Amino acid sequence: MSELPTWLKPIADAAADVSAGTLAPSLPAPPPDARPSAVLMLFAEHEGEPSVLLTERAATLRQHAGQISFPGGAQDPEDDGPTATALREAHEEVGLEPDGVSVLGRLPTLWLSYSNFAVTPVLATRDHLDGLRVVDEAEVAQVLRVPLDRLLDPEHRFSVVRGGWRGPAFDVGTPVPLWGFTAGVLARLLRVAGLERPWDESRTRPLPEPR
Rank of each mutant, 00 (worst) to 15 (best):
D76M: 15
P168Y: 09
P210Q: 09
P177C: 09
L152H: 01
L178M: 10
S202M: 10
P121G: 07
H156P: 00
Q67A: 06
A34G: 05
G48Y: 06
A138K: 15
E139W: 11
L96Y: 10
E196C: 03
P32E: 13
I68Y: 04
E47F: 05
D99W: 06
L151T: 14
A193Y: 06
V161P: 10
A14P: 06
T120K: 00
E45P: 01
P5H: 08
G163A: 10
P147M: 03
S26H: 15
P147F: 06
E137R: 15
H128D: 13
G163F: 08
R145G: 04
G100T: 00
G81R: 00
P210C: 08
L61H: 12
A58Q: 04
L123C: 11
E3Y: 03
P108L: 07
A124M: 02
P208G: 02
L148V: 09
L123D: 07
R35M: 13
V140C: 01
A86H: 00
G194V: 13
A15Q: 10
P77C: 06
Q75Y: 02
V146N: 00
L112N: 13
E196V: 14
I11A: 01
L151P: 14
E45A: 13
H156R: 12
T182I: 04
T22M: 11
A24L: 11
V140D: 04
T6Q: 12
L152A: 04
D136Y: 04
P98G: 04
L132R: 08
T55I: 15
S69A: 15
V140K: 02
G180Q: 06
A84R: 09
I68E: 02
N116W: 11
P108R: 03
V134H: 01
E47L: 13
S51A: 12
T22S: 11
P206Y: 06
R205W: 13
A124Y: 06
P177S: 07
S26E: 15
D127W: 01
E201A: 11
S159K: 08
R106M: 08
L54I: 05
R205S: 13
L195Q: 05
V143Y: 07
P198K: 02
G21E: 13
L23F: 03
R106V: 02
A141E: 13
P121N: 07
D171C: 00
V119I: 15
D13M: 08
P198A: 05
M1W: 12
G48S: 07
A169E: 10
E93G: 04
L27Q: 05
R203D: 08
E89G: 03
F70Y: 13
P25C: 01
A34M: 01
V192A: 12
L104Y: 02
R126T: 07
V135G: 09
P98L: 03
V146P: 07
V134W: 04
G164D: 15
H64V: 14
I68G: 01
W199V: 07
V192W: 04
T109S: 11
P36S: 09
W7H: 05
G81T: 00
